[in-house]
């Protein structure tokens, strides 16, 4: 189980990963609550896309955070719920609380496309390369 919290303006996103059960929920709860109480965001997002397992302790985690955000005058959103977790979520009726969102696209930093050196530079590079017939010898 791991947790990564990212703040962007008035929005705090907690990226949950691994397994959420009674054992791991406590640590997650404390870390998320600490952050939410300090920063008082307008929106707390729980991102589940990397969660590999969840039982009803995870539902308790969401419900508890929902209540906390209500107390803080903010909103809770749940996003990125993988299909194997949806069953438990649906059983709890969390989807009816209107907190669930479709997966947000992951922000990726794409590297700039590979740029070929200009023809002149390529020629210059070729001249510098020792040819195969040239032997390196101490003279």
């Amino acid at each position: 189980m791991s947790l990564r919290i990212v703040t962007q303006g008035e929005e705090v996103t907690a990226f949950l990963s691994g397994e959420i059960d009674h054992h791991t929920a406590k640590g997650m709860r404390e870390e998320i609550d600490g952050c939410a109480v300090r920063q008082k965001p307008l929106k707390l997002v729980l991102d589940f896309r990397e969660v590999s397992f969840m039982d009803s302790s995870g539902i308790g985690l969401v419900m508890g955070r929902y209540r906390l955000m209500q107390e803080l005058g903010g909103e809770l959103r749940v996003t990125g719920v993988p299909s194997h977790i949806k069953k438990v979520m649906r059983l709890s009726g969390l989807d009816k609380l209107a907190v669930m969102e479709e997966s947000r696209p992951r922000k990726t930093t794409t590297p700039p496309p590979h740029r070929q050196p200009s023809e002149e530079v390529q020629e210059a590079l070729k001249e510098e390369q020792p040819s195969d017939s040239m032997a390196l010898s101490k003279e």
């Binding site: 009803s56 302790s57 308790g60 419900m63 709890s92």
Partner: peptide, 16 residues
Amino acid sequence: TTGERAGLGFAVMESF
């Protein structure tokens, strides 16, 4: 009493 448990354990067992 902490509000952190959903009370769904048996519901999950029954459903799954």
